[in-house]
Design a protein around this nucleic acid. Structure first.
Length: 610
DNA sequence: TACATACCTG
DNA sequence: CAGGTATGTA
């Protein structure tokens, strides 16, 4: 294969990876901001104010990726990035508000009624002000609602119908003051229907195995109206019942159907399908993907945000923990849509999260604890970018320390590159596909920790430094020497070419310095070539040492000083003799210098790192 | 012609 | 540091 084709491959690969790397680096801040924005919108929208303040402080932005990095992590700690995603996306909350919102939108009786959730949850303004956001909210809510399963919904309706008498007792006791006039009318007009519905759904519940423990007299723990209900204020109870009626109203549509549960499931599935389809179209038309559901439970307490409002409703029990799966699956549909863009283009998507409507409020009384057998990482199949974003978080915690211990000279860039590589390795490209990405920096330490016998399929910054140190001994290493010294690398044409290119560049810099200092000596009037010496304190040596041994943690062999001195004198002589008029005048010098190579110490062949 | 290297450029 | 091109050599 000719070098041209190899170059072409390298070029294209490099271009690609450059784009990826740039995307990463430049998206750092964006991505980080996206984290915040996701946090803003995660829980219930109500506390978005204080979350937004974080973002506002942050957004002005830091052009320094490292600063961004640090900042983002310190923040992510506060935001409980991992579990928060699952917790905050709780089905209960979204189902509640979404369902009731849907009902409010669809229900005739709600004309003129602001949706309870809208009144109670501070995010409604966003929803109402943006039809697209409303769509998204509907999609998410429907998806989440699905997760709670129709059976659960039925149990909820059943419970609502059961609560009705007590509510009427309450109304009789307190009068209509605690409820709106419309609500009172609805109570009266629908009471009869509800009674019938109640009976029917009780039958359904009893016949359904899926609703074990939700039968009458054995309520779902979270739907128990005992203690928690007693703790409610009157207005809370009214609102709650009001929302229950909305659900029941929807149920009325199916009242005449025999298989209610199945029908509901079908309807909801159909709605879900359409909603997801709409959301896909919308998302790809209007904004980058929103992958950020790294919501934080800790910061936005649903109790505080929705307390006293209609947000407090039901608990869907075990369905809660299923919601994130469903939701991420839905999002995965979006993510997996073919995209001509680079994968990392998705990363900044979360930045657009700030423009999305906040998540529906989270009902309190819901156990957000995520089962240990369902860690967030289990959903990596759902949203690759989401996993990637989170992986960045985790790498920054643990892997960062390892990073920082290596090369100070490549701090920021190495972070970006290595993270990018890890992401690519894990999610986008196989390691083999990275072979022809010459400047891909795979952290060998990480790989070797995983498997000390595994060959690196790329050259790292450690390899580069090692090559530079090798240059102190050999300026023209043979391929055999290279293979011996880089025995931890799986040699390919690309790897070999890259190493050869490295040494070519090293020589180029070396000879440029020699010529420069030789001419400088001539200009300074050095008459005798014996006056040209290269010591460790010489300016020439410092220049070379900075280039090849920047950390100055390597004892440069005396032999290199000798070679440098010889080379300097060769240049001095050639220039003084006017040989530099010949375009190829340096070649004679190169022939001399190439014979001065020394053997590379055994340490370079036995150890991977310097 | 294939390959290696130098040179120039970004 | 890497890509591209020019040049020299076998």
């Amino acid at each position: 294969m000719s070098g041209t084709s190899t170059n072409n491959e390298s070029v294209s690969s490099r271009r690609i990876f450059q784009s990826l790397s740039q995307g990463n680096s430049t998206s750092q801040s964006v991505w980080s901001k996206g984290m915040f924005s996701s946090s803003n919108t995660c829980l219930d929208g109500c506390p978005a104010v204080h979350l937004c303040s974080h973002q506002a402080d942050y957004v002005p932005s830091n052009s320094d990726p490292s600063d961004v990095y640090e900042t983002s992590h310190s923040y992510s700690d506060d935001m409980l990035p991992d579990d928060a995603f699952y917790n905050s996306g709780g089905a209960g909350s979204s189902s509640i508000c979404s369902t009731q919102w849907e009902l409010n939108r669809a229900g005739d009786s709600t004309e003129g009624h602001p949706p309870p959730a809208s009144r109670s949850c501070g995010h409604n303004d966003w929803n109402l002000n943006d039809g697209h956001h409303a769509k998204r909210a509907r999609v998410e809510n429907i998806i989440k609602g699905m997760s709670s399963c129709p059976a659960t919904l039925c149990t909820d309706v059943t419970r609502r119908t059961e609560e009705l008498p007590s509510h009427q007792e309450h109304m009789q006791r307190t009068g209509p003051c605690s409820a709106t006039h419309d609500q009172t009318e609805q109570l009266e007009s629908q009471h009869q229907q509800l009674e019938r519905l109640r009976t029917k759904f009780q039958n359904v519940d009893q016949a359904s195995e899926a609703t074990d423990g939700v039968k009458e007299g054995n309520h779902h723990p979270c739907s128990d109206s005992g203690t928690s209900q007693e703790a409610l204020g009157d207005s809370d109870r009214d609102s709650e019942i009001y929302q229950g009626w909305k659900r029941v109203k929807m149920m009325n549509y199916f009242q005449s159907r025999p298989a209610k549960i199945k029908l509901m499931a079908d309807v909801l599935k159909d709605e879900l399908s359409k909603a997801v389809s709409r959301s896909v179209d919308y998302i790809f038309k209007s904004m980058p993907l929103s992958l950020a559901h790294e919501d934080s439970v800790g910061d936005a307490s649903p109790q505080s945000s929705c307390k006293g409002n209609n947000c407090r409703l039901t608990c869907y029990g075990s369905a809660v923990v299923r919601v994130p799966d469903v939701q991420t699956e839905a999002l995965s549909l979006v993510v997996q849509k073919p995209q001509p863009e680079k994968p990392d283009k998705f990363i900044p998507q979360s930045s657009s999260r700030a423009h999305l409507p906040p998540e529906p409020p989270v009902p309190f009384g819901v156990d957000f604890a995520l089962p240990e057998d369902q860690p967030p990482e289990k959903n990596q199949t759902a949203v690759r970018q989401h996993a990637l974003s989170r992986a960045q978080d985790r790498h920054s915690e643990g892997g960062q320390a390892t990073f920082n211990t290596h090369w100070n000279s490549v701090k920021v860039r190495s972070k970006v590159n290595a993270r990018s590589v890890r992401r690519l390795q894990n999610h986008t490209l196989s390691v083999g596909q990275l072979l022809c990405l010459p400047h891909v920096k795979i952290e060998p330490d990480n790989l070797m920790k995983t498997n000390p016998y595994m060959l690196n399929e790329g050259l790292s910054t450690n390899h580069l430094k090692k090559a530079k140190l090798m240059f102190f001994y050999t300026r023209y290493p043979s391929s055999l020497v290279l293979k011996k010294c880089f025995h931890d690398v799986q040699f390919t044409r690309c790897i070999t070419s890259q190493l050869i290119k490295w040494f070519s560049n090293f020589r180029e810099f070396f000879y440029i310095q020699m010529e420069k200092f030789a001419r400088h000596a001539l200009m300074e009037g050095v008459a005798d070539v014996r006056g040209l010496t290269v010591g460790r304190e010489s300016e020439l040596f410092r220049a070379l040492n900075v280039h090849y041994n920047k950390a100055n943690d390597f004892q440069v062999p005396d032999r290199f000083l000798d070679v440098a001195e010889i080379t300097l004198r060769e240049f001095y002589i050639a220039i003084s003799l006017g040989k530099d008029r010949d375009p190829s005048w340096k070649k004679a010098i190169y022939k001399v210098i190439c014979k001065l190579d020394s053997d590379v110490p055994a340490d370079f062949q036995s150890h991977h790192t310097g």
